[in-house]
Amino acid sequence: MDFILQPWPWFIGGPLIAISLLLYFYFGKNFGASTNFETMCTILGADKFSDYFKKDWKDQAFALMFVVGLIIGGFIAAYYLIPNQTIDLNPQTVQELTDLGFSNVGNQYFPDEIFGQNAYTSMKGFLILIVSGILIGFGTRYAGGCTSGHAITGLSSLQLPSLLAVIGFFIGGIIATWFIIPILF
């Protein structure tokens, strides 16, 4: 039980993610997460606005069940499996973020400056989250996948578009962390 409650080392992560992918394919479906954004749009009535969403969402019921599992799993992890969210960060990372005005860096998974109540109830904080979300939804659909679909499934099956997509992920992520975060904070 002690091991369950401790943070798991990085080298456990890769194999367990790969096993998840294996089971997903074994169950007869293609591993990925971001198609669900599209399916949810269809369920919410987006098919009335664009033919793009005229799909039978029931074909994606398995993926929606996976999403329900992700949500349940998140609650289980947050409430029962992670008594201490401290992260063993690089001291340089801690220093940089502290200099940018972040408090309690690495004491929890999510910084208060973005996820705290004072952040998301402010106009700036709300916009940071909603615009990030829009970029995630738009970008994953335009690129045809996310970290699961492109970086893991696509790269491991040696697909060239996925390599291009992952290069794009890093271009965007580097611009965001090196240039945008210091402007925002």
Binding site: F138, T140, G168, A176
Partner: peptide, 9 residues
């Protein structure tokens, strides 16, 4: 598309 997603990520 990947770059836009990367920005949000």
């Amino acid at each position: 598309g990947g770059t836009l997603f990367g920005l949000g990520w």
